[in-house]
Design a binder for these strands. Sequence first.
DNA 1: AGGATTTTTGCATCGAGTGCAAGTTTTTAC
DNA 2: GTAAAAACTTGCACTCGATGCAAAAATCCT
Lengths: 208, 208
Amino acid sequence: MIKTIDGATAGRRELKRRQTRERIEEAAMSLFLERGFDATTVEEIAERAEVSKRSFFDYFPSKEEVVFAWQDGFADHLMAAIASRPADEPAVKTVQHGLVSAIVSAADERAMALGELIRSTPALKARDQLKYAKLELKLTEALKARSRSDEERLRVRLLAAVVIGALRAGGELWNEQPPGTSLETFAHRFFGDFWKTLADFGYEGQDL
Amino acid sequence: MIKTIDGATAGRRELKRRQTRERIEEAAMSLFLERGFDATTVEEIAERAEVSKRSFFDYFPSKEEVVFAWQDGFADHLMAAIASRPADEPAVKTVQHGLVSAIVSAADERAMALGELIRSTPALKARDQLKYAKLELKLTEALKARSRSDEERLRVRLLAAVVIGALRAGGELWNEQPPGTSLETFAHRFFGDFWKTLADFGYEGQDL
DNA sequence: AGGATTTTTGCATCGAGTGCAAGTTTTTAC
DNA sequence: GTAAAAACTTGCACTCGATGCAAAAATCCT
């Protein structure tokens, strides 16, 4: 039995398994980007990854999941970032920092191409939206864990909903931004505007 | 050629077509609710609706679409409700009234069962989230049409995002409500809390 | 009625996804 | 080091959703 640096067991078995998984991911992504999601068959992916079609489904439950597997990283990063903030920090601040941190670390060349692929494939669009819902759920849980009163827990559910909404709207806005803009700067500026606008909405809604 | 009250042409052809569509919808829904979405095959639906499997796909592009077809009504109602409000009313107020009106008119026995079906079927969950995204888009467009300045148009995008977030969170909360609660009362109370909470968030975010 | 048009159907086909049993590789225990 | 146990891979057969196409049936128009 071989031990890795981080203490996880990694016999030949697990090692090979991880490599195979990566090979499949690699093969799938390159094919998707070459000819599109729908025009790529699982058999072609399996062939390029040098496994059988049947084994593909041993690693990924469906063709779609290959696209979204790596995106779990975003949620994980966000959770970690939130957990690392002081416990007495206001939730609003915690969330903004967590999100900006996760966004900046997730936005690379690959992510952009992926985004384009998703946007241009109806079947993936639906699955993509589900990701936001899952993220919202996780965010709610993470924030609930930090809150003390029951009242705070209700607020936190709304905060998650609102902030994920902002994430989507912000993403759209970012795509319309001239190239060369700094993502971090944009994100901070966007949130600044966002809280201000929220205050306005809240104020306007008071007398209803 | 036969003319109907509303002036739309309705020869035997169109009439029969509408009837068939309804029969398929009826057949599909009853089967979905009886044995679940996945356990129902298109062939069974076609059989109960007395059409061929091939014809099913002439009326609906996919099995999933049967579930979501009727839900277009919600968006339409919302658009109409928004259009009917005075043009100089603040957007926040317009949106709240529109949503409450659409919610109340859409929430019947059937809708509840549908909701449960969707919640318990992973494949439908994803498609359901897409509906929110589409609704957000439509809402944004409807509000943009009412706004005059460019600045207002940006605000309106955020308002749509935030308010659809509230719709989802509110829906969840409603499902946890004791039975017998008035939906309209609940909705108005919820929005009241919502704007207040929004104001808090906005205030807390200012000093970032 | 009867020719033109639209709808419905059957059939063949593709691709995603699953269950199963047989074959292969890695691990573990002696 | 070897052999049994456990985990992994593969091929095969099959189900089901979805699409294209051409023949057949229903409807429309004059």
